Amino acid sequence: MIKTLKSNRSVIIGVIFILALLFIQQLTFSPFLKSIGASVNATTLFISRLLIWFCLLLIWFYSIKFEKQKLLIWEEKNYNIPFYIISVILMFIIIIIGVTCIQKAISLLGLKSNSASLVRIVNIFKKNYWLMIFTALTAGIVEELIFRAYIQPRLELLFKSPAVAIIISSFLFGLLHFQYGTIINVLGPIFIGAVFAIHYWKFRNIKVLIFSHFLWDFILLSISLKR
């Protein structure tokens, strides 16, 4: 059941607030390192993940103090274990097919698909396995709580359209990955975000999305470490 927000203004301010926090963090972190003569290493990468957690903390504070409600405004539904297993498997199959098609299309168009930034990060993870796990956990927990649990339901209330909320939240989720520097690193997350958003709209369960997101990132990063 969806609760009614106090005003559309609180929705707009909240969404703009969280997006500003995230994009400022993404835009300023790398240039700031260059300005002080530093480079991305295990320490700076760890700090960047902590900053993302801090963004989530601020959004939680905003929802409690200014919106006067919980971060999750959709009531969380619980299911049996087979539901979670089937959900993860089906989402993985859909994502693999979708991302593969996107990669093929990008390859046919002759566009860049290899991310130098991602290669540098993977090289850091080769010597810091626990940092890789923390990064995947951060992505799974924080990004799902922000883009699905916080932004999507509020956009649906604002536009009175589940489809619009799914499209906008997925598009914003993809843009968050622009710092990796390639079109696949934006289009891929947009598609993944849409799959997760549709599942959240239909089943109202954020836990399965958090686990699926973490597992997806963990598997991809683990595969990258072996290359």
Score class of each variant (00 low, 15 high):
Leu5Gly: 09
Lys6His: 02
Ser7Tyr: 04
Asn8Val: 03
Val11Arg: 01
Ile16Glu: 00
Ile16Asp: 00
Ile16Ala: 14
Phe17Tyr: 11
Ile18Leu: 04
Ile18Gly: 02
Leu21Met: 09
Phe29Trp: 15
Leu33Gly: 13
Lys34Glu: 14
Lys34Tyr: 09
Ala38Thr: 05
Ala38Leu: 15
Val40Ala: 09
Thr44Leu: 08
Leu45Phe: 15
Leu45Tyr: 15
Ser48Ile: 09
Trp53Ser: 03
Leu57Gly: 10
Leu58Gln: 08
Leu58Asn: 08
Ile64Ala: 12
Lys65Ala: 07
Glu67Ser: 02
Gln69Lys: 08
Lys70Leu: 07
Leu72Arg: 12
Leu72Trp: 04
Tyr79Gly: 06
Ile81Gly: 01
Phe83Ile: 02
Tyr84Arg: 09
Ile85Met: 05
Ile85Leu: 13
Ile86Phe: 05
Ser87Phe: 06
Ser87Gly: 06
Val88Gly: 01
Ile93Asn: 01
Ile96Glu: 05
Cys101Ala: 14
Cys101Met: 15
Ala105Asn: 02
Ala105Phe: 14
Ile106Gln: 05
Ile106Lys: 03
Ser107Trp: 04
Leu109Asn: 01
Lys112Phe: 04
Lys112Met: 10
Ala116His: 08
Val122His: 03
Lys126Arg: 15
Lys126Thr: 06
Met132Arg: 04
Thr135Glu: 11
Ile141Trp: 10
Val142Pro: 01
Val142Gly: 01
Glu144Cys: 10
Arg148Lys: 13
Leu155Ala: 09
Leu158Glu: 02
Pro162Glu: 11
Ala163His: 10
Phe171Arg: 06
Leu172Gly: 03
Leu175Ile: 12
Leu175Val: 07
Leu176Gly: 15
Tyr180Gly: 08
Gly181Met: 08
Thr182Ala: 10
Asn185Tyr: 13
Gly188Cys: 04
Pro189Ala: 12
Phe191Asp: 05
Ile192Val: 14
Ile192Leu: 14
Ala194Met: 13
Val195Gln: 08
Phe196Gln: 09
Ile198Leu: 14
Phe203Ala: 00
Asn205Glu: 02
Phe211Lys: 04
His213Pro: 08
Asp217Gly: 09
